[in-house]
Each structure stands twice: as structure tokens, then as C-alpha cells.
Design a binder for these strands. Sequence first.
DNA 1: TCGACTTTGTGCATAGCTTCACAAAGGCAC
DNA 2: GTGCCTTTGTGAAGCTATGCACAAAGTCGA
Lengths: 232, 232
Amino acid sequence: MIRRIPQARDRGIPDATVARLPLYLRALNGMAERGTPTVSSEDLAVAAGVNSAKLRKDLSHLGSYGTRGVGYDVQYLIYQISRELGLTQDWAVAIVGVGNLGRALANYGGFASRGFRIAGLLDADPHVVGDRIAGLVVEHTDELETVIRQRGVSIVVIATPAAPAQQVCDRVIAAGVTSILNFAPVVLAVPDGVDVRKVDLSIELQILAFHEQRKANGGPIMAEEWPDGVVM
Amino acid sequence: MIRRIPQARDRGIPDATVARLPLYLRALNGMAERGTPTVSSEDLAVAAGVNSAKLRKDLSHLGSYGTRGVGYDVQYLIYQISRELGLTQDWAVAIVGVGNLGRALANYGGFASRGFRIAGLLDADPHVVGDRIAGLVVEHTDELETVIRQRGVSIVVIATPAAPAQQVCDRVIAAGVTSILNFAPVVLAVPDGVDVRKVDLSIELQILAFHEQRKANGGPIMAEEWPDGVVM
DNA sequence: TCGACTTTGTGCATAGCTTCACAAAGGCAC
DNA sequence: GTGCCTTTGTGAAGCTATGCACAAAGTCGA
């Protein structure tokens, strides 16, 4: 039926693997810049901060792209991972909410270099609309649907406060978007078929605080030896 | 070295659970603001976007704080989760790197409300040093060790570019910090006993792109049914 | 007090992820 | 070609996380 020539086994890549592919890609790009022609799973694993067996298993899900006794060709592996992640095509991204975070995202260089093109910046605040940020003029959120449809936006970043996030979410989904990156501190309700990924800055700090508290209390072993405290 | 004593009465809370506690906490805070006195695991699970059995199992790791037939007392559960996460104490946080992202973090309200006090903003750029952001004056990174020691900083946020991140990391560890939140796109090398959590904005987009590409290609179900193509 | 009803806490089965360990595969020297 | 060396790719084992299903434990009205 449909020919998928370069891709014999792109079925069912585990989520955990997909989440690590960008990590490998970054490590590989660093090696490519330094002119390294090939890399072993051991070296790449160290550069990416993972176990080498895990790395090999991850890569085996993409195909058999290594050479036994030698390792992986850096350029070829970069291409294969990029293709698997969909980074060989151009993705139009819109950022909704141009506060501090939205500005930081708009100016973040890590997007453009990986095939993500910021196609629109939108905000509800008339004082922000018209500002020029990272080469784009901020538009009013009234234009949300128009921007999405006319510029082929397929990924939307929500960087608004918590309150308007769900409404923005509903609107972009109605406009056909099925991939959302959410920075607002709310759980977005979305229909099946829509992917939401969430980044929460304060959650990460809270997880750190948990571990820090453990350390301060004399380590994880002592904790269990505390007597039961006052119970309500 | 860390002793691992697997004990029956182990108070070790699974990492997956710890990562969800802040989520529950936020949902509970919303309920507390609306004056809700008690909540069932079912309702709280919906608010947090998880399965109710998972929520109950997570909470059971903290203790038996619910009442059968009734649910959980919102205020009491907030207190217990906060205490477990270490949010009942005050954490002094320093942010290194006051670019767009550092500014966004400094102005982010979600920190102060959870016991995280920003005790220092540092940058290497003399043009930025002296700026007043979120009530603090930006200091030069030369002062890093002084700021950490004199203000009791126990958590450091690295929001610098990739290049200086490892050096900043080394210095804060040398100054006694063992919890680091890293926004720089590098894998930080740290000794045992130091916790690093990493937030990478472009990785999240790449994961979204992967799934978006899958959808565009006819969905993940069809993929398995494609015949094997040409293999290199 | 009792019985109907609600909701927790958890045993258990399952699914998914990680790590080990090693046979298979390729390069290289001679 | 042969033998040795390196490194991949993967079967299998072990570990962690998930979700079902239900007994236990509590509330509440009569």
C-alpha cells in the first residue's frame, strides 16, 4: 500500500525511549560539531547520562543502525533520530501568552535549530499586542483561529496564567490543533487524540525540596524510625 | 557510601508518587480556596488528572489520612503533603543566569507561595548586574559562594546558557549545595549525593513533534500493518 | 443499635521499564 | 582465510508502576 521505504520498524516505540531520543540527539550534535565520525554506545551513553544497555535498546527500536565492533556513525544516527522524531520537517508553533515566560520561549534558540518555527505570538493584553519580540509582532488572541489556520500551526504553546488556559486550549483544539505544550499550572481537559505535555516549574522545585529534606534529616534510612507523631 | 537497608516498614516513597504529590497539592489548594471541606479520592483524582486508585495508593504511602465513607479532609491533607514534600519550611533559592528565562522564573508567583524564597539573582554580564528584578538586585556571579553561604541557599536554579552551566554547577556544589534545578541544555556531571533535576523546553516540543508526526502518518495503529520496506 | 451506603486502603495481576550478560557480527592484522 | 578483538543487538530476569476489584471501616438515618 503506502511505501515507507526508509522505515521498516517504526512501530510502537516506548514512551520512555521517545523521551530520551532528544537527549541522544543533543549529545550527537555536540560530537558532530567536534568532528567525531563514530561513537560507541558506551561513549554516547556517558555523554547523554544514561546506561549503555538502555541506550542500545532504545536505538534498537529505531532499527539496526550500528556496526558491531565499531559503533554508530554520528551523522547517520543524527539523521535517523531526527527523522524518527519528525525534526526533518518544519513545524509551525504558536505561543499564546507573552509574559515573561512567553518572551523567554520566543527568544529561546533551541527551537529554531530543531525545526520549530515560531509562527505567531498572541496575547490578550492590548498593552502587549504590537510589541516586537524575536522578530515577530505580538497579535491579539482574537486572531488565534486565524493565525492557526492561515499559518499551518500544528503545535501550540500555552504560556498564559492559569485562568485563561483552558479556554485557550479549547479554542486551539477547535481550530484543529492536536499537540499542546502547557506551561500554565492547571490540568487541561482535552478530548481523545489531543496530546498535552506539561511543564511545571514549581513542581520540579517541590521534588527537589522533598529530596533535600530527606538528606537534611539524616538520609532516607532514618526517616522510618521516627515515632508516630500527633494524630488528629 | 549510602547504605541500602530494605526494611519492611520502609518509608521510602516511590519517585513516581513524589512527582505527583505537587499535582495533588495544587488541586487541593484550589479546593481549599473554594471552601471545600472534604474530598473523595475520585473527585481529587479527576481534578489532578489521574486514576483514583493510583491516587489512593500514592496517599497511602504517606499514611492513612482518609476517612472511609467520607474522603479526605482538604486542609489536613494539604498539611500532610506539604510536610512530606518539605514545603512547611522556608527554602532559600538562588537563580544563576538572569536572561529571559531567569527573569521569568524570578517573577513566577508559584515559588513564593510554596515556601521557596528567592534569596539571590546572579549573572556574569556586567550590564545585567545591578538591575532590579522582582524586588532583588542582580549580583555578579563572583559573589556566588558568598551569597550561597551567607543566605543559607540550599537550592540553586541554573538558567545560564549551556557553556557556563557546568562551571556554575561545580562552584555551587563546592559551596555546599546539593539540589540543583537545571534549565541549561547540558547533562551536568555531579558527584553522588547531589540531586539534579532538568527541565528542557525543546525536549518537550520534540516529544510532541514525534506524536504529531505519528498522527499525520495515519495513526499509530496502521503503522504496524505496513509491510516491511527496504532495509539498508 | 442496626443496616444500608459510601469510600478508603490494599492484595493481586499485569504491563512496562531497566539492567545484565552473552552470542552474533563485524573489523583488522597478518 | 584465520584468529582475535571490539561492540552491537537482544533474550531473559528483575524491578517498578499501574489499575482492578473488593474487604474493611467508617458515616448516617431511622
